[in-house]
Every structure is written in structure tokens, then in C-alpha cells.
Simulated scan of single mutants.
Amino acid sequence: MPAVRAVLFDLDGTLLDTALDFYWVIDKMLADRQRPPVDRATFRQYVSEGARAMVSQAFDLPATTAQTDQLLTEFLTLYQHNLMVEARLFEGLEQLLEQLEAREIPWGIVTNKPERFSRLILQKLKLDRRCATLICPEHVSNRKPDPESLHLACEQLHCRPEEAIYLGDHLRDIEAGLAAGMPTIACAWGYLHKDDDPESWQADHVIRDTRELGALLNCL
């Protein structure tokens, strides 16, 4: 494998523990309706599936009903006004970013999270000037698992896909990386569903502890 010239991260469940904010938002919506809070262990499994899946699971509704649509709008509005209430980088990831920057290896984010949320999160974390590229669904025609967003990120970072590496906590992240011809790392500390088996995703590496990540990247 060529020397790594860029490192790309998925956002939710890989770089950032956003579930903490999603718990807050959904619990407020439930409390407003005199309903008990979510079971966090169960709810966490749906975070990487997106906002609609989270709302559907929390309110025990099908994904495509008018009621779900209304709750989804409320969820997204409330989330936008309460970004980074509790969310934070996963332990050890700030040090990893500093390590990459010290080695002059640019890093970026390729996410299915809308830009209006992603960019504001980076600003609040003061990462917006450090992040070399941010690719969101608005920037491409096809979101992950299609490789288009990863190809665009590599174009912006002036490297070939095989010279970058992509980290993600969902099968679609690894599928996108494989389709792009990019080495991949499956991040098993993320928002895995109980039926997920990262070992079967065909990633180049499966990492279960963020503390192992720096050592691995140092070897690449």
C-alpha cells in the first residue's frame, strides 16, 4: 500500500460522539409528550442510520408516515438549535488529529450528515480551519455507499484514493471506501447495531479502541 497522504473520517460515530446530543433532543421530545426517555443502549444502535431511523425507533413508528415526517422536522429543528450540548470528540481523537498535523498529513471528513449541521459542529469544535476538506451530501449527486464523495475529497486533497485512508463505523463507509479503491478502517467503537459484524465488512483493519488508532496509522 502506498504511503498515506491523507486521512478521511466519517463524522457521527467515528470522529464525533454525537449520540449524546441525540439523546438530549429525543428525550426532550418524549418528555414534552409525557413519555419516558429512550433506552440509550438500544437507541444508540440507530444513530448511524440517520435522523429518520432515530425518530422512528424512539416513537415506535414506521419510517414513512405523516406523523414520522412531522416528528422528524421537529427533531432536526431542535437538533440544529442545540448542537454540541453534550457531544464531543471520541477519546483520543484530538490527539490523533494533532499527530496527523504534526506529520503534515491533511485530514478531512466525508459524511452523509447535511452541511448545515456538519459545518456548524466543526466551527463549535474549532476544527473548521484544521479540517482540510468537508464533503457532505449537498456536494455530490450520490451519497455513501457510492464512492463519489470520497473521490471528491481526494481531488480536493490532491491525492489518489489509494494514497488516502477512510475510517467509518458503518458498512456503507467501508463499501464506499472499497468502491473508491481506498484502504479502510472499520471503527468498532461507533454506533454499531447489535447484528453488525465489522469483521465481515472486508475493511483492511478493524479497530475497537481509539487508543489503537494512532499506533496503526503510524505504521502506515
Rank of each mutant, 00 (worst) to 15 (best):
A188W: 05
D204Q: 14
R160W: 04
S200E: 14
G168H: 02
I121C: 04
V140E: 06
A102Q: 15
C131R: 08
R172W: 12
M54Q: 12
D12T: 08
Y191P: 00
D146K: 02
L8A: 06
F75W: 08
W24R: 13
G214A: 12
P137L: 10
F9K: 02
C187F: 01
K124Q: 15
G108P: 02
L217M: 07
G181F: 04
R143Q: 14
V206Q: 08
S118V: 01
E163L: 07
Q99C: 10
R172E: 05
L125M: 14
P106C: 10
Q123V: 03
L93N: 10
G214M: 06
W24Y: 15
P62N: 13
T73Q: 15
A58H: 00
V206G: 05
N142S: 15
D10I: 06
L11C: 04
A31V: 10
S118L: 05
A58Q: 01
D27I: 07
R35M: 15
I26R: 04
H193A: 13
H193F: 04
C154Y: 09
S118T: 09
E115D: 15
D39P: 02
L16K: 03
S149W: 03
Y46L: 06
Q67V: 11
Q80R: 15
L97S: 06
M182G: 06
M84Q: 13
P183L: 10
D196I: 03
V38R: 01
G214F: 01
G50A: 11
Q67W: 05
R40M: 07
T18E: 02
H158K: 15
I135F: 06
L30H: 03
N218K: 14
R208F: 02
L100F: 08
R208D: 09
M182K: 07
Q95S: 14
A153T: 07
P106M: 10
A153N: 06
L150A: 07
L30Y: 02
L213I: 10
V206W: 04
T14K: 01
L15Q: 05
T133C: 08
L89F: 02
W201R: 08
V85N: 13
D17V: 04
R35T: 06
L15S: 03
E148L: 11
P183W: 04
D12V: 05
L72G: 01
L78C: 11
D21P: 01
G168F: 00
I109L: 09
L30R: 09
Q67A: 13
M84Y: 05
H158S: 14
W107C: 10
A41T: 12
A102N: 15
L78I: 06
Q95K: 14
I165R: 00
Q123W: 03
E212Y: 08
L78Q: 12
D10K: 05
Q123H: 12
E91Y: 09
L97D: 07
R88I: 07
N218I: 00
R160P: 00
Q123L: 06
V25Y: 00
N112T: 13
I174E: 00
E212M: 13
F75R: 05
A179K: 11
D196N: 11
Y23P: 05
D17F: 02
L100K: 08
I26F: 02
G214E: 09
H205L: 09
H151W: 13
G50Y: 07
A58P: 01
R172G: 03
Y79W: 13
R103K: 14
